[in-house]
Design a protein around this nucleic acid. Sequence first.
RNA 1: GGCCCUAUCGUCUAACGGUUAGGACACAUCCCUUUCACGGAUGAAAUCGGGGUUCGAUUCCCCGUGGGGCUGCCA
Length: 525
Amino acid sequence: MMESSIKTPVRVRFAPSPTGFFHIGSARTALFNWLFARQNNGKMILRIEDTDKERSNPAFEKDIIDGIKWLGMDWDEGPIADAQNQISNLKSQKYIGEFGPYRQSERLDIYEKYLKQLLDENKAYYCFCPKEQLESDRQAMLAQGLAPKYSGRCRNLQKEEVQKKLDNNEPFVIRFKMPETEVEFQDLIRDKVKFNSALIGDMVIAKNSRSPLFVFSNTVDDYEMKISHVIRGEDHLSNTPKQILIQKALGFNEIKYAHLPLILAPDRSKMSKRYMETSLIDYKNQGYLPEAIVNFTAFLGWHPALEQNLEKDKSFQEKEIFSLKELIEKFNLKRVQKAGAVFNIEKLEWFNIQYIKKLSSKNLFEKIKYFVPTKWTEGENEKILTVAINAEKDRIKKLTDFKELANFFFDLPDYDVKLLVWPQPIVLPSEEIVKEPEINKEKSLANLKLLVEEINKIFKADFNKEKLEKLLMPLTEVWGRGDLLWPLRVALSGKKASPGPFEIMEVLGKEETLRRLNIAIEKLE
RNA sequence: GGCCCUAUCGUCUAACGGUUAGGACACAUCCCUUUCACGGAUGAAAUCGGGGUUCGAUUCCCCGUGGGGCUGCCA
């Protein structure tokens, strides 16, 4: 079981490129890497792959770093972010770890060195082909039904000729001399994977000696940083043979690979903004808790082994709620699914509900206060908010829901008089009203007046849920529960769905309760 | 088009080659209930197709088919 304990220490990396907001799929990749590192007593390395100068942006890097921390993960080597998550710019305290710098934009000397090695050993060469030429080559091959690959035109240029072109400052790229061979590797999730590199062609590995491309810089850094396992998305599967060949050309040792199944949109296409939110920050802003996102994404393409003794019991309900700590314990790369997994927002919502339920009133308050108007948290309102949160707790799916659910605690919304009448019309899905209740405003009016009378008698000190219920419920035995409680609750909330009337009364207090009842009475008169 | 990966309820998934194919989400019905939500109970719902191997395939192999990824001087 512990066969790897004597081998090289586990060092994994999460290597995002800061070219967009932290993607939820990337977040899962980071999570699986982190779980694997923590579980194997290994190191988690964060490396920023910002070689694409046009598209990279420090703001995105910050978003990624914030996101990782928000989810509850950390890293042992990489950029240092302080308590405020500000990325340090002081050279002396920019990075932690002995294999830095951890931003590729600062590692150009290293890539240049290996590029030179490849060039010197004739394993790479300068290519001066103009883009237009390459494009027409490509089209021609495609038209013939062939796999488009570089023709190799510049592969065997004479040394003198190359030097002349370089001296003339002719634009060039650097291509890797792709050996034509069968590449086979053992994927930790997929087992044997085979590629024929003859189909690939001499790929570009750098735009110039100081502008390496992903396949190259990524390979070099994984070696330089002594990465033991590369855990990444399946979209990189076809990059792996290329990188293995580069490793061989450079004399690097082999690395273990694990390619994670992709997260799919509901129509099974690649998850894209067309169909859904893809950025972690969007989910955060909608009021999903980090624990829910972690739990949900962990279960997208992975599932823990059943406990031995429970396996036999057919009626056994599997546990699905896992903390980060439990995930570290239970995670297993070998149990990662091979096929893509559809992102099911309803399940995420369910996880969120579970974690909201676990929150103490105080913690929930701390989280919700960022999702409500500031007015609600000021002065006396803070107390109202506290009780309102407790009253609505079971109804909150996302933190953002609360504002809409609970606004009536602060301001009575306008509502239709008809809402005060019980029973309510039954509405079928076809939206046709089947049963129009006798618009018996009289009954609601009488009942509300009765309630005003009774509530007037109640001491302010007794305005709590339990006491109010004890004092007012007996009335329903005479006047009917629905007939009495429904108009009361509507008068208080102005909504057709809300917490119970006694809970609301406790929050509103005697004065406001009576004021709202009188508003309802006015409406009915 | 080519190459690679992949396939159990609608979705996420469980099942040493032998199970009434299990669970979760969503859905439906019922109970609780003034409403909504919560909670409880019940139900409907799947092994892509065809060949092998085997006494026996969800499980192993092959061929189709479906889905996905890659096919950049992006990562």
